[in-house]
Every structure is written in structure tokens, then in C-alpha cells.
Nucleic acid binder design. Structure first.
Lengths: 190, 190
DNA sequence: TACCGAATGTGACATATGTCACGTGATGCC
DNA sequence: GGCATCACGTGACATATGTCACATTCGGTA
């Protein structure tokens, strides 16, 4: 499927906009290719863009003072990634985004997003529902963190994204679940 | 401060709308009073309203199969509370909302929210930014869960809401932090 | 081919946390 | 006044998890 169609199908899930308006919407995105391992956002960067994944897989992560990595999100196709705290507040990035595999994204600047939201009620509607969905997903993950043990969270993750099992090294899965790689390993080998 | 002024100041933080439009916005809310301990949303309910806290304190919580409570949010004045998963998806409530103290809220139905968002671009803009803020707060809490230990999370919470220290029983603080009340107690008594 | 580094598994041990039990003090209600 | 309930602290112990150390496997590369 072409990038334009992927985005259109995604937008169509939340709102109905005219073909003409979609063309305009799409024209504001810039397509980019990244290689496996490449960084997209690094801690301390000025963040003025967000990324819609067409193909491949990104991770959003945080490195603490003890050099431990925590993964906030794996961004699979049709998911958005950025440092939204920095993006919305104008502060410097406190999290990193990089590529787990070769990845194709559509990139949208904050300036373009806000301009389009101002010009078009429909587009603002789309972004409201996109964030609604993100908020609910984030709340669900929080609840899962408190309520489920590591094994349950692992199985939940793999059930939701079976492709992660072969795509992503286990120590990254562990960093997403918030446990050490040893603990994850012992979950299903003892 | 009057309810109308509290809401107006809150809305003004995210968007600038005309006095006339704000009057209309406000007219769609219904003010309600609840008593300490009273339930506002119970698991299994149909959820078609959200609540803006004017005064007092709510908690949003989940009870798991082992009858353990996990608190997703304390809703202080000018915060919103509901089961947003249920509210946005139309499913039945999976979380509960009740009153920690006597509480005054402004209540808005989903129907009214969506009607107003459709009628008014400015109001849709407001709700987009409200959810943006909620999303960022949720992400921060998730990160805090993974990165900080219980003591750090406790101090972070009290620094953010000093009034909680005297307002809320310690076992509820523990349920927010995701630890047992005994563990919380030992944090600062041993 | 030989070597290196990354990913993974696993044993040993320390630490954090949960669970259960019990005691105390404060509060509210009959 | 007396009783029940709740909030809270704390000791004892089990369990889960982190940390450190080391071995193995596998791909990629010189």
C-alpha cells in the first residue's frame, strides 16, 4: 500500500474528510527513510516534529542516571511517535526515539499541525481523536503495570503485537515491561 | 470563586473563546454535589458523562479479582475525571470513580461535548488540548513508575499535591503508588 | 576460517516487597 | 459510656526481582 493510502485509511478511522482536504493534509507531510539503529530524536534535542510510522518499528525510550533504558512505546505501522511532552510544551527532549528496524515514516512539523488545525475544523477533530486514543492506551498500560505481573504483561504485549516476538531482541521487551532481561528470560525457562 | 469563573479560567489556559461562546459552553454543564464516600461511576455502568472538579477530591480506581484497589488518578479541583475508555468507546465502565471528600463537580454529557465540538471549532480546540495535557501527564506517570522507586514516587506525589498528605488516608496513597500500605508505612518509619 | 560482539540462558546471592498477624489509638455511632 | 470500625505501625517470614558472574550460541566480518 502507498504511504498516502496508509495515512488516508488511518485518518478515516477517526474522521471523515473530503478527498481535497486529505490531499492538502498529506501534502504537509514529508516522507523519510531511516536505517536500523538510527536515532530520530535524541535527549536534549529541540522537538518540533512528530512521526507517523508507515513501515518498520520505532522505539521511544528513556535512559536514566544508572544507564538503564525504559521503553515507553514500540511504534508499529500506523502509530505515531515523538516526545509529546517536549513537542507540546516547547521544552527539550527528555526521551529518545530510534529505529529497531529499517523504517519509513511520514514526518509532520508542529507548525504545520497547528496551522492545519486552525484552518480546518475536520483536521482538528482528527487530532483530538488521535490523542484521545493515545490517552486511553496510556491509561490502560498504567493499569496493566499496577495490576498485572510481568508474565501477564509479557503475554498481553505479544498477544497485541505477535510480530514483536521475532522482531525485537528480548532485552528490549524487558525494558518495555520494566524488568531486567534475566527476569524476563526466567519467566519461560524455569 | 464561582463555578463559572473556575471553568472559565481553566478553559482560558488552553484556548481563547468569546464570552458569548463561553456562556453557551457553560450552559451545557450541570452542577452536582456529592458526599464523601459517594460513588459517581461504578464498574459495569454505562458511562456517558465526564466530571470537572470544582471543589473537593475524587479518585478513579480499579478493583482487581483479588479485591485489591489501584488508583489511577486523584482528581483535584480543575481536573477532569471519568472512565475515558468507556466514555470514548461506548463500552461499560471498567473503573470506578468516587468521592474522597465532599465534592462539587460540573458534569458534561458525551452527547453535549460532541455536539459542541461539532458546532464550535474553538471548543473542539479546547478539548484537543485538554486531552493532550492528560496524555502527557499519563506518559510522565508511566515513566515515573518504571524509573523511580516507591519513595521517589511518593515524594513526587506529595510535592505536586501537598494537600493530599492530610486529605487522603495513607492506604489510598499506597494504592496510587502501587504498593501495599505496609510498604508505604515502612518508607518513612524505619 | 577464525574471531568478536551481541543476545541469551542460568546459578548464586542480596534486597525489596507482599502477606499475615497483631497491637494501638482515634473516630463515630448506638 | 461502650462498642465497632478504621487508620496505621510493625514484626516475621515467603516470594519476586535485581545484580553479578559466567557460559553458550549465532551472525557478521576481518
Amino acid at each position: 500500500m502507498q504511504p498516502k493510502e496508509i495515512l488516508k485509511e488511518h485518518v478515516g478511522k477517526f474522521t471523515s474528510i473530503s478527498e481535497e482536504q486529505f490531499q492538502y493534509f498529506f501534502s504537509r507531510f514529508e516522507q523519510r527513510s531511516y536505517r536500523k539503529g538510527q536515532a530520530i530524536i535524541t535527549e536534549g534535542d529541540v522537538v518540533d516534529q512528530e512521526f507517523f510510522v508507515l513501515e518498520g518499528c520505532l522505539k521511544t525510550f528513556y535512559i536514566n542516571d544508572d544507564i538503564k533504558m525504559f521503553i515507553l512505546q514500540f511504534a508499529m505501522p500506523t502509530w505515531w511517535a515523538s516526545d509529546y511532552n517536549a513537542l507540546y510544551s516547547g521544552s527539550k527532549a527528555s526521551v529518545n526515539v530510534d529505529c529497531i528496524t529499517d523504517t519509513e515514516v511520514l514526518c509532520l512539523s508542529s507548525k504545520d499541525r497547528e496551522e492545519m488545525c486552525k484552518e480546518s475544523h475536520d483536521i482538528e477533530h482528527f487530532f483530538r481523536w488521535r490523542t484521545n486514543r493515545g490517552y486511553v492506551a496510556s491509561q490502560k498500560r498504567l493499569l496493566s503495570f499496577m495490576n498485572n505481573n510481568t508474565k501477564q504483561r509479557y503475554e498481553e504485549l505479544i498477544a497485541q503485537y505477535p510480530e514483536l516476538y521475532n522482531l525485537v531482541p528480548k532485552h528490549l521487551i524487558a525494558a518495555y515491561l520494566g524488568v531486567s532481561r534475566e527476569t524476563l528470560s526466567r519467566l519461560y525457562h524455569s
